[in-house]
Amino acid sequence: MMRCGDLVQPLINLMRDKLLEAPLVHFDETVTQVLYTKKGSELKSVPLVLHVGSGCRTRS
């Protein structure tokens, strides 16, 4: 029996290859609070967001 990760690995590899071909890649690793508990502690997550573009745009 195959696991889900094994089934989607070809798609992940293709997405990585296309990402690495791009002339510009922007990474955002902003820490995000995702859970509160009754004790007041919190769980933090770092979602990795990738944006691929062909050039830089600036605001004038």
Rank of each mutant, 00 (worst) to 15 (best):
M2H: 04
R3K: 13
C4W: 13
G5Q: 08
D6A: 08
L7I: 08
L7Q: 05
V8M: 07
Q9A: 06
P10T: 01
L14C: 07
L14W: 07
M15K: 11
M15D: 11
R16E: 14
R16L: 15
D17M: 09
K18T: 05
L19T: 15
L20N: 14
E21V: 01
E21I: 00
A22I: 01
A22W: 01
P23Q: 06
P23E: 07
L24D: 11
L24E: 12
H26F: 14
H26A: 15
F27V: 10
F27T: 07
D28W: 04
D28S: 12
D28G: 03
E29W: 04
T30A: 04
V31I: 05
V31P: 00
T32D: 03
T32S: 09
T32K: 12
T32L: 08
Q33I: 01
Q33C: 09
Q33P: 00
L35D: 07
L35S: 10
L35Y: 13
L35H: 10
Y36K: 14
Y36T: 09
K38I: 15
K38R: 14
K39L: 14
K39H: 12
G40V: 08
S41P: 01
S41Y: 12
L43Y: 08
L43S: 07
V46G: 00
V46D: 00
L48F: 03
V49S: 03
V49E: 03
V49D: 02
H51R: 15
S54I: 09
S54C: 06
S54D: 12
G55I: 02
G55K: 12
G55W: 01
C56I: 11
R57H: 09
R57F: 10
R57W: 10
R57P: 01
T58I: 08
S60N: 10
S60C: 05
